[in-house]
Amino acid sequence: MYQAGYRDFHKNMTYTSDDRETLYTVFLSKERGWSTYWNIMKLRSREAWIWIFGLGVLALFAPWFENRVSFCIPRMLGVDFCPGCGLGASIGHLVRGELVESWAAHPFAVPTVAILIGRIIHLGRLERAQNNKENTNG
């Protein structure tokens, strides 16, 4: 039901047998190497890049940030209570496999990472469908 319109574009796209063969050989060939994974660099969605950057920074540097840097805006303004505090540390622990510490810092690390990665994938698919649509319309 979700994004039915975009899926229909994929269905209605007409590949010639030549195209299909080329796609298949590219998929099967060992030469595809890194180029397949570099496709992520073509992503133009600003929101997707913000989430990728945020998750990446937290995954790499969250333990270092602890007691040094805080991204919490209420804390910067001098308010003590914030329901999102500890999420960064929690994601940092989760990436390193420290599940107990992760839960102690903030219980939502797993759903947050899952939903954000889902959102990034969704935005990527949306963009790919739009690119295909532009190509088919010439």
């Binding site: 969605s45 600003r46 929101e47 913000i50 945020g54 991204f71 919490c72 805006i73 209420p74 804390r75 914030c82 329901p83 999102g84 505090c85 999420l87 939502f108 759903p111 947050t112 939903i115 889902g118 959102r119």
Partner: peptide, 28 residues
Amino acid sequence: QMGMGILYFLTAGFCFIGVIVDLVNHKK
């Protein structure tokens, strides 16, 4: 976007950083 909505609601929009992200991206 129910998943993102619940996440934002329960974490105050990732300490309001997500709210700023959405302000920037509201047209998109």
